[in-house]
Amino acid sequence: MTAATGSPSDSCALPRPSGRAAGFECRDIRKTFYRNSAFQIQALCGVDLTVAPGDFVTIIGSNGAGKSTLLNVIAGTFSVDGGELLLDGEDISKLPEHARAAFIGRVFQDPRAGTAPSLTIEENMCLALRRGRRRGLHMGVDSSRRQVIRENLCLVEMGLEKRPKTQVAKLSGGQRQAMSLLMATIAEPRLLLLDEHTAALDPKVAATTMELTERVVSARRLTTLMVTHNMELALAYGNRLIMMHAGRIILNVGPTEKKELTVAGLVQKFRDVAGESFTTDRMLLD
């Protein structure tokens, strides 16, 4: 250990964007759970959304609005009942989840969901580095990959790059979530999906994770959809905002309008379009 440990940022230049960020479009996406039973739930009833390359869209909405379902449908965890998902004009709705994962990165709410606990930090990173590429009998962590992994790890400024052989199970929730974010972005996905990825962290860690998200997304100019319950976050980050309610997009705020929007203004807008108030929702509590 030398004195240099205090400030890793000198050696940590953010990578340049590769220009792979995709434009994305949902056309009339529908999803029903427990179809044809008494418990039928229409989670998405015709979602239309157009996202330009490099857009950072924040998504808010009450519980059960269909935000997670929308992200799961885009990623292919759930199949759609109808509609098209176009990535740079190409319909991806028939591809299986793992095939879509070649160009879609995801971070989940649960910090344990994004990493393999019994593998080491560098092994996890190496798995992420191979997104969308062949996985054969090449040595997983070799010296050139180790270099890339190290550079990425020091972006989070948690000292993870100094202990690449530590099992991920031994890391804190915040550290694991930071790793999940790196793993979702290290291979430059064309689309990044974040589902309340800071909601399970304590406020301070959530703030640093959000700051890291902003840095990574803007440095790589990733097309990003971020679900959050926190209106402040939804307004502070990204260049666009959409609000979902009962399986529909009820509000779509563009870049210029979003800059001027306040929490109060947003609540008012919701009342105008939905005719209900947020009182039962945890959004106001955040």
Partner: peptide, 12 residues
């Protein structure tokens, strides 16, 4: 270890 995670890293 975590099947959902490795699938979302594009492993069949």
């Amino acid at each position: 270890d975590n099947e959902q995670m490795i699938r979302s890293l594009s492993v069949n």
